[in-house]
Simulated scan of single mutants.
Amino acid sequence: MKYIKYSLILLVFGLLSCDLGSEPTIEGTKLKAMCGEWWINILVDGEDIGAGFHLVTTSNTAANNETDLILDDHETWPAKIVTKVNLPAMTFDAAPNLANAYDDKIKVSVIEGKILKGAATTPGGNKTDSLYVKFEFSDDPGTQYEYAGYRRTGFLEDEH
């Protein structure tokens, strides 16, 4: 009798805990076309400074709008900024003296930038998107740095 009582209680709780609602609509981020991981080289005046490849991440902000993009160089400079973008054109808007989450003493000015769909060929011969962003950092005024590279493919032959 004791087992039947507990079985009935578990059955009632099991039936009452069922979610009979519909499945939620799951949407992606509004800037998903511009978000991702990128292998970049650092250039000055179009010349590679010889620092090798670095991983940079672009992502949406918590606001999940079509204009605010986080660019994080994972402390390469260090720079982690929220910058304005033009999603239809896949470009970065010019913006002076942006706040830097890694170092509040170093401001970052975005001069220009763009993402080109399918324009890069990786070391492994794969086609992927290209990233180019030109910056000036307040701790090195007058020098314009370029982050130029390709979207991370996940293929071993394209890793650095």
Score class of each variant (00 low, 15 high):
L8P: 01
I9G: 04
L10W: 07
L10R: 02
L11F: 15
V12Y: 07
V12Q: 08
L16N: 10
E23V: 07
T25K: 15
G28S: 10
G28Y: 01
G28M: 01
L31T: 02
M34V: 07
M34R: 03
G36W: 05
E37A: 08
E37L: 07
W39E: 10
L43W: 11
G46V: 09
D48R: 05
I49P: 10
G52C: 07
H54K: 14
H54E: 14
L55C: 12
V56T: 13
A63Q: 10
N64G: 01
E66R: 07
T67S: 14
D73K: 07
H74T: 09
T76D: 09
A79F: 08
K80A: 12
V82Y: 07
K84A: 13
L87I: 10
L87M: 10
P88N: 09
D93A: 14
D93H: 05
A95P: 01
A95G: 10
A95I: 06
P96Q: 14
A99D: 15
D104E: 15
K105S: 15
K107E: 09
S109T: 15
S109R: 04
V110S: 04
V110H: 04
K114A: 14
I115H: 01
I115M: 13
L116I: 06
L116W: 04
K117H: 05
A119L: 03
A119N: 11
T121H: 02
T122Y: 05
T122K: 01
G124M: 02
K127Y: 01
L131A: 04
F135L: 15
F137W: 13
F137V: 07
D139I: 02
G142Y: 05
T143L: 11
E146M: 07
Y147E: 13
Y147H: 11
Y150K: 05
L156V: 08
E157T: 09
E159I: 00
